[in-house]
Design a protein around this nucleic acid. Structure first.
Lengths: 148, 148
DNA sequence: ATGGTTGCAAAATGTTTGCAATGGC
DNA sequence: GCCATTGCAAACATTTTGCAACCAT
């Protein structure tokens, strides 16, 4: 989906809920779209400070919660008590997380969905989503570790 | 493994590291063992208060970190910025998490391990562990939801 | 004009830490 | 006696919130 469409969708969401569109919200949405991938609050704060767009941290928090409600972003994981978000534009994928450099690599896999269904049926559970995180070392960090 | 063995293992770990065994640490380990499953810090605090075992929150935090280092407990997930731990006595398993009542159901599945290897090979990643969480609704909550 | 939004500072939450007193070894 | 550990309070970090001024509709 194109950024322009997403912005329209956001305005729509705002309208439906009887909320108001503001420059701050538009600006935050812009930044979020420009991350293109994973980000945390401070990334957004930093970018906006850098560009001299005045927005308070409180408003960023409030707006990210809005974007989460509307489904545009997801919480990926909390590392060190910090929330990491991601744009929810791509189809579902999971993550490989490097324990050394904290790099997050995305992947998709068909089989997981089937596996999920099988497991849930066996436990009378009604799945909506899943999250598979594989922890280990990326190639670079693995090689560095071998030397020590 | 029996609780007595685990306690011995803990004393061993303490000794190896040149640390000291204390009544507080033993008491906290006892509580952790008695949870039998998932717990968070406040559960331990509450149980110990109830039993009139005097320990400070700080010591519980410090001891849980010790237990984590020695591999007896794992962080499962952070919900509402609270850390949820689990005893690591059982062999590896994953979790079904009910979005409504927050119940955590455990399951094991062989195929996931194979899947993990396949995925990691494809991405030049060197896995150590994984975490698969399936979010949805348990049977009771699913039925309740249908009515609304 | 009404009622949602902002920024600020304060509060709330979960967790860590500095330090003096205490207690294992 | 040495040095780790404890408890306390203070410090920290992240996130939320109360409120007055503000602004979109």
């Amino acid at each position: 989906m194109k950024h322009a469409d997403i912005k329209e969708q956001f305005r729509e969401f705002i309208r439906e809920k009887g909320l108001k569109n503001t420059v701050q919200r538009e600006a935050i949405l812009n930044e979020v779209l420009q991350t293109g991938g994973h980000f945390e609050i401070e990334d957004i704060v930093y970018q906006m400070r850098k560009k001299n767009i005045p927005v308070s941290r409180a408003t960023i928090y409030r707006t990210l919660n809005l974007l989460k409600d509307m489904g545009l972003i997801n919480e990926v994981i909390k590392i060190d008590n910090k929330t990491i978000y991601e744009l929810a534009l791509k189809h579902h994928h999971d993550h490989l997380i490097c324990k050394s450099c904290k790099k997050i690599i995305e992947f998709t896999d068909e089989e997981i969905e089937k596996l999920q269904d099988k497991i849930c049926k066996a436990h009378n559970f009604f799945p909506e989503t899943h999250r598979l995180e594989i922890y280990g070392y990326c190639q670079e960090c693995f090689q560095k570790r071998k030397k020590t």
